[in-house]
Design a protein around this nucleic acid. Structure first.
Length: 469
RNA sequence: GUGGCUGUAGCUUAGUCUGGUUUAAAGCGCCAGGUUGUGGCCCUGGAGAUCGGCGGUUCAAAUCCGCUCAGUCACCCCA
């Protein structure tokens, strides 16, 4: 009977499944991923650039916890920002602390500044960090639940040149990494006083249009008026053209500060664009706010008035003179920014930026057990001499070892077998010409260094004075 | 959180509409052999896939249906 057969079949299936239960497979959580070769090479390069330039600009490295008190972010970033309202990973510990995975780095650095008494150090204090940030949101191009940010905080400086210096650093990092057409989009949102009058004007303007606004914007008009400027709805964007600009509502001090910033930027020949509608999402910002973009090759940069498929910004920041006080610390002015490392790598890939690959220049090939032991010693010697050598001591087949050497593109292979061990010699093979030479063991380093020097000179000549084809 | 599209070896894909000659195919990559002390080219062979997962329909499911997970794009927002 069919039913019986079916039952048997199903039982069999169930058994087979049960057997394989032990080998359950896992995948990385949504929006989180592994980074490995070849991409990791670009991350490493960028980290080198960040570390070097941070030092050159006088920043000190700081490592801060990935978890912080949830309220630290609520107080600093703002209760009704999306970042804390719906994108935070919050967890309770056994001791009923409520912690959050950091969605950004500035709050933690500010906390560290206060907790560790950095205000008693010579001011200003410049700190940089690098590490993962977490936001519970839907993944999309250039946005992940776990992503790496590098941040720079310039604490205890109110001079407008600090703003300019900060932007210069940001641009230089982008350029040094290999990004093309790096530019700064900036604006000033003023101090708390300016913002009150601006918001009033903005609300007044939009209230006259409120019937034609999209439903989201109708709500924003009451909840977060500044966000009206970000709407992508067509009619809303039309209204934006004539909307009041923040710059028109700056008080005397803020206006003077911003003017100075622009002057410094001009002086430093920083490529910048004023974006009158740039208002950043985090509550702690005041006065100068900016974002960093790399304009794709043929596309021309435009200011905030014109609509165009804007590239994602790979960094953003600004002044946050109120934050320290908001967190219970001393009144401390500050500027800073964060870089979206994953986004920068993404752009670099699109722009065909090549990682600085570090391949070995020689390869040690061994055959037989005695030679294997000898090779282990030789490799130790080569490393002590700073010669980067490839090898695979686990392999018996010389053919396979030569293949690996070839794949790595090494110029020289050091070959050692039974005969060489006995005669205290090594074979040096030029992988390009195929010429092999027997060298006494004690002369190996010297012979190798000489060859590598010549090979390098060869290469340099080729690149700089090579015959044009 | 909402909606569109996608999911087949490590990678890129064919097969899915029209269920059964599919014991799921190819290229790249990987491993081994051809050359037992020598790489690239060539030739031969091998390993590698619970056809994202679970359930349903059917005599029969990679193929049809439901749910789910993940990826991707858009909204929201941001680095």
């Amino acid at each position: 009977m069919g039913m019986q057969k079916k039952q048997i079949l199903k039982t069999k299936k169930a058994i087979a499944r049960k057997r394989s239960q032990g080998t359950q497979t896992f995948q990385a959580p949504k929006g989180m991923h592994d980074i490995y070769e070849p991409d990791i090479a670009l991350f490493d390069d960028l980290q080198d650039v960040v570390r070097d330039l941070a030092r050159a600009y006088g920043y000190q490295h700081i490592e801060i916890p990935v978890l912080e008190d949830k309220d630290l972010f609520v107080r600093s970033v703002g209760l009704d920002t999306d970042m804390v309202e719906k994108e935070m990973y919050v967890l309770k510990t056994r001791g009923r602390d409520i912690l959050a995975l950091r969605p950004e780095g500035t709050a933690g650095v500010a906390r560290a500044y206060i907790q560790n008494g950095f205000m008693y150090m010579p001011q200003p204090v410049k700190l940089w960090y690098w590490g993962p940030m977490f936001r519970y949101e839907n993944p999309q191009a250039g946005r992940y639940r776990q992503h790496i940010q590098a941040g720079f905080e310039f604490l205890g400086a109110d001079n407008p040149i600090a703003d300019a210096e900060t932007m210069q650093l940001a641009v230089r990092i982008g350029e040094s990494f290999g990004l093309k057409n790096v530019c700064v989009y900036l604006n000033s949102i003023g101090c708390s006083a300016c913002r009150v009058s601006y918001r009033k004007a903005l609300k007044a303007y939009y209230r006259t249009k409120s019937r034609k606004l999209c439903s989201d914007c109708k709500r924003r008009l009451h909840t977060n008026a500044l966000r009206l400027l970000d709407c992508k709805n067509e009619t809303c964007m039309m209204f934006r053209k004539d909307a009041p600009e923040t710059l028109g509502y700056l008080c005397k001090d803020c206006s003077a500060h911003f003017k100075k910033v622009l002057e410094f930027l001009d002086e430093m020949k920083i490529n910048y664009f004023l974006d009158p509608y740039l208002v950043r999402g985090l509550d702690y910002y005041n006065q100068t706010v900016f974002e960093l973009k790399a304009i794709p090759s043929q596309q021309q940069p435009v200011d905030g008035h014109e609509q165009q498929k804007e590239p994602l910004s790979f960094g953003g920041g600004g002044r946050y003179d109120y934050l320290m006080k908001m967190l219970g610390g001393p009144d401390t002015t500050a500027v800073g920014f964060a870089l979206g490392i994953d986004r920068m790598v993404e752009i670099a890939k699109q722009e065909q930026v090549k990682a600085k690959k570090q391949n070995p220049r020689v390869y040690v090939i061994q055959m037989g057990d005695i030679a294997r032991t000898k090779a282990l010693q030789m490799l130790d010697m080569l490393r002590a001499q700073g010669i980067f050598a490839g090898f695979d001591l686990c392999r018996d087949s010389i053919k396979a070892q030569f293949r690996s050497a070839d794949r790595l593109g090494v110029r020289y292979a050091l070959i050692i077998g039974q005969k060489e061990v006995v005669d205290h010699e090594v074979l040096i093979r030029d992988m390009e010409t195929g010429i092999q030479e027997s060298i006494p063991e004690e002369k190996m380093i010297e012979a190798l260094k000489e060859r590598l020097r010549l090979a390098r000179k060869d290469k340099i000549n080729h690149t700089f004075y090579g015959v044009p084809s």
